[in-house]
């Protein structure tokens, strides 16, 4: 996998009419580096992550991957960025393992490679025992772990996560931190929004604090 060299926000801002959702912010994150986005409720953390993943057009400034504008309509952008912002739309008729196998398949890991990817991700997040459960049979913390697994089971160069600590106990937060740190060490670019001091400490190389909008 060829990792991108940088994810850049250049004076990125968002507003509706004159209501400011995100005050202008600029930074660059390089390959093998993790940035924590911090700020109070309503400061625009999720809005910024949506912009960085190409799901939302900023009303000011622009976000770039290796100098190219970020727009999720481009296949190359979807291939590069794995974003988990909120819980995904699970399929009630698929088990946890089938979810991961399905996702791995859509990213070109065919046959046993998809099964292997699903197995490895479940082992990494210590949820192998949940492989045959349907999503409605998971606790809120287990659902969060499966949600994170959906972002990790596919190939990516950039990982964007919104509050990965949600609904997780201290042990699971440490586990998730180590999994994300391993991805960074592998060369991935990571941006997380988090209110968890221990996760930010374990994952991020630096952080950016958003002004309250």
């Amino acid at each position: 996998m060829g990792f991108v060299s940088s994810l850049e926000a250049r004076d990125v801002s968002a507003s509706i009419d004159s209501e400011v959702l995100l005050a202008p912010v600029s930074f660059t994150v390089s390959s093998g580096e993790a940035l924590a986005v911090q700020g109070r409720n309503g400061s625009g953390k999720t809005t910024l992550l949506r912009i960085l993943s190409g799901q939302l057009r900023p009303t000011g400034g622009q976000a770039f991957i290796d100098g190219e504008s970020v727009d999720e309509r481009r296949r190359a952008v979807r291939r590069t960025i794995s974003a988990r912002i909120g819980l995904p739309a699970f399929a009630r008729e698929l088990t946890a393992h089938e979810h991961l196998r399905f996702i791995a398949t859509t990213w070109g890991r065919l046959g046993s490679a998809a099964t292997d990817a699903a197995d490895a991700t479940m082992v990494a997040l210590a949820i192998s025992h949940l492989r045959n459960r349907f999503v409605n049979e998971l606790s809120s913390g287990q659902t969060q772990l499966l949600s994170l697994a959906t972002a990790l089971v596919r190939p990516f160069d950039v990982l964007i996560l919104d509050e990965p600590e949600q609904r997780l106990d201290a042990t699971r937060r440490a586990l998730v931190s180590s999994v994300i740190r391993a991805e960074i060490d592998r060369g991935a670019t990571v941006v997380i929004a988090s209110h968890s001091a221990d996760m930010v400490e374990a994952i991020a190389d630096r952080s950016v604090s958003l002004a309250e909008s």
Binding site: E72, R78, A89, H99, W107
Partner: peptide, 16 residues
Amino acid sequence: PSPFLIEFLAGSHLAR
């Protein structure tokens, strides 16, 4: 299509 297919199939690198 269903939200699931949008999330994980239309959201993949395959052409929409």
